[in-house]
Write a protein that binds this DNA or RNA. Structure first.
Lengths: 240, 240
DNA sequence: CCTATCATACTTGTATACAAGTATATCGGA
DNA sequence: TCCGATATACTTGTATACAAGTATGATAGG
């Protein structure tokens, strides 16, 4: 589908999803990467023609993207809003907020099972990076945090996570792909960070947890924002 | 539409909304009030027949409700999940979380305009209760908190609010309607609480704000949960 | 040349049709 | 009586058609 032969979003992650979901994932990647410029007006009919599917899944996808605030549904057409640097900061505000909340709960739990799961994911990340698979690394990274959040069994925190996850995932995916080429060393730092996470959860010291959390976020946020800016610049350059 | 002649959700709030949104609001009210029992399987076709609209808006409504975790979209049919007491606690966890965050920002702002807006809403609430209009009171109550949240101009906090608002709104609406008949005195307490809010924002003392926030929530949460339980009991009784 | 009105081509929201897949129930056989 | 296969009646996902409304542009009149 579409004149673009290849997709930005890993197809195997959405192999048996509906067209609406798939299109949402792909459009999200294109918008966040800057491939679709801000201000662009997306029309249901035009998208239907371009992607060669009917309006039903298109509508579904646009609703999803609108709920993530990266497009704005107006009277006529969906206007691409995209992400500003402010937005990225805000996403990390929210992550910090919910993960801090989560940790408050985690210290009161039996974390042995969780630690085991996280260790497994951590090793997966090591393997992924060993074979230069940025997509798999991103997947496991997101899964790592989701696993922690899921562990406290809090449906409304989970709801927030589910609403912010897609954009997070796209940002991380784009960032990791760039780093694979230009800043390979970063990965070992990310891995180290996750080790600290696991350790902090294991010994259940809330202060160390929060500290590790902040440290990671201060680190990661800058990098993601940085990488994202490069991506934007790159997209800008490509247009000319 | 439907065999139920009257709707639980105030029709004037959604006068010019699409059928999908309207149906979502109505179904949400019926599910939260217990009018539609947990475990019920909602079929798109059956709903289409019952409400005499096509499947398109039905699908839209079900997607919305699924994103709010009050129904679960499965292979065949949408299973009504509803709210447990745990869910209600969790919603207030989230509100406490985001409103605490918001207040951290509010103290750094010029709040004069905000205070003015809130005072207006507060007076609206007084008028609403003077004329025994529980729906209008609920509307202004929700608007009060939304106004505070909106004031910090944080799109992702706003996103969370938008995701939790519908369920909150339904809970408050049902609770206020009951109180109008049985616990009329409660309203003056709610009004007092909001006065404290405004004052706390005006003098910009973070500690007092947080304190006021917690006090209000401890108070309101219990009441909402309480009222909601009564409602559930009532619904149960009606079935027999 | 400027303005107002009307026609046209777009937009969304909704209805309906169809295809593919799944649970259920019935019927035949042991 | 119990088990298995098949048929049927459901389900969702997608495509398409239609209606109502809106922006745009062209045209007529001043």
């Amino acid at each position: 589908m579409s004149k673009y032969k290849d997709f930005l979003y890993p197809e195997k992650w959405i192999a048996n999803a509906s067209m609406g979901v798939r299109l949402a994932c792909e459009l999200r990647m294109r918008i966040i990467s800057g491939m679709i410029e801000k201000g662009t007006v997306l029309s249901e009919n035009k998208l239907a023609l371009e992607f060669e599917i009917s309006r039903s899944p298109i509508r579904e996808a646009l609703k999803v993207l609108a709920s993530e605030n990266i497009i704005r549904l107006e009277r006529m057409g969906a206007v691409v809003v995209g992400l500003t640097e402010k937005d990225i900061k805000e996403i990390y505000d929210v992550r910090l907020l919910i993960e801090t909340f989560v940790y408050e709960r985690v210290v009161k739990m039996d974390t042995s099972e969780l630690v085991k799961e996280l260790s497994k994911i951590h090793e997966m990340m090591e393997v992924a990076i060993k074979y230069g698979d940025a997509d798999e690394f991103s997947y496991q990274d997101v899964l790592f945090h989701e696993t922690i959040i899921r562990s406290i069994d809090h449906s409304y925190i989970m709801l927030i996570w589910n609403n912010t996850k897609p954009v997070m995932e796209s940002l991380i995916l784009l960032s990791m792909r760039m780093r694979l080429e230009k800043k390979y060393d970063d990965f070992s730092r990310v891995l180290k960070n996750h080790e600290v996470y696991i350790k902090a959860i294991k010994i259940k010291d809330r202060d160390i947890m929060i500290q590790a959390l902040h440290q990671n976020f201060d680190d990661v946020q800058d990098q993601v924002a940085d990488q994202w800016m490069s991506q934007q610049m790159l997209a800008k350059g490509r247009e000319q």
